[in-house]
Amino acid sequence: MLFAAIIACEVGFWVLLGAGLLARYRWRRRGLSTALLICVPLLDVVLLAVSVIDLRSGAEASLRHGLAAAYIAYSVMFGHQTIRWADRKYAHRFAGGPPPPKPPADGWPRVRVETTFWLRMVAAYGITWVVTGAMVWLVGDWSRTEGLVAFTAGLARVPLIAALWPVSWAVSVLRRRGRRSADEQSSEHDRIPG
């Protein structure tokens, strides 16, 4: 039942998002669009309720409960950003809006973008722990929720691996800056009469 709820919430996210964008740009019904887009976070409430009901009815916490917690955290940290991205894409493609801004291609601005994204991942991981803790507390039986805690602990690999992107961009920028500095020093040395 919980896997079906997770899938239904994911499908519901995209259906509500698509319907909200259609209402805004195709049907020119801004109020309806706003109402549909406001309903998107309610899916998280539904998923949380289904997860807690499942656990309280005697189910042993497992992968599906961990996925529900991670889905809720992702939605909190990236849902609004995803809606804004889709809105800009749709407005540009179907409503004559300006093209969506592209992320910086290089340098410290790119490092900032990658670091911000990574920090959002870390925050989502923290929210996953909060939701997991709430589920464990609501169930009140460690033996039935031990698997949920183990799954959430294993998710630490995601932000740890994702840290490679901002670090690699920063190292790349620093290397180029070091090479540029060395080139400038050697060209200055060449200009000084010996």
Rank of each mutant, 00 (worst) to 15 (best):
A5C: 08
A5H: 10
I7N: 05
A8N: 05
C9N: 11
C9H: 14
G12A: 09
F13Y: 13
F13S: 06
W14K: 04
V15A: 07
L16C: 06
L17I: 01
L17W: 01
G18D: 04
A19C: 04
A19W: 05
A19S: 07
G20L: 05
G20K: 03
L21T: 00
L22H: 08
A23Q: 03
Y25W: 08
W27E: 11
R29L: 12
G31W: 12
L36V: 03
L36E: 06
L37G: 04
L37A: 06
I38S: 03
C39I: 00
V40F: 02
P41N: 02
L43R: 03
L43D: 07
D44M: 00
V45T: 06
V46K: 01
V46N: 00
L48C: 02
S51M: 09
S51T: 15
I53T: 01
I53S: 05
S57Y: 02
S57I: 00
S57D: 15
S57F: 06
E60P: 02
A61T: 05
S62C: 07
S62Y: 00
H65P: 04
H65M: 06
H65V: 09
G66N: 12
A68N: 07
A68R: 07
A70D: 06
A70V: 15
Y71K: 08
Y71C: 03
A73P: 14
A73C: 11
A73L: 08
S75E: 06
S75V: 02
S75W: 05
V76C: 05
V76G: 07
M77V: 11
I83E: 06
R88Y: 05
Y90S: 05
A91S: 15
A91N: 12
R93H: 12
A95L: 04
G96R: 03
G97Y: 03
P99Y: 02
P101Y: 00
K102L: 14
G107I: 00
G107K: 09
G107L: 05
W108R: 05
W108G: 01
P109L: 07
V111F: 15
V111C: 08
V113W: 11
T115E: 04
F117E: 13
W118L: 04
L119H: 09
M121V: 08
M121R: 01
M121N: 07
M121I: 07
A123I: 12
A124D: 09
A124Y: 06
A124L: 03
G126P: 09
I127H: 01
W129P: 10
V130T: 13
V130G: 01
V130E: 00
V131F: 01
A134E: 10
W137C: 01
L138C: 06
G140I: 03
G140R: 10
W142F: 12
W142A: 13
S143I: 05
R144H: 14
G147T: 03
V149M: 12
A150V: 13
F151K: 11
T152P: 13
T152D: 14
L155G: 15
R157C: 15
P159M: 00
L160Q: 11
A162L: 06
W165T: 14
V167N: 08
W169P: 01
A170G: 10
V171A: 12
S172K: 12
R175D: 10
R176M: 13
E184W: 03
E184H: 09
Q185N: 09
Q185T: 11
S186D: 15
S186G: 04
S187A: 15
S187Q: 14
H189A: 14
D190P: 03
D190N: 04
I192E: 10
I192Q: 08
G194T: 04
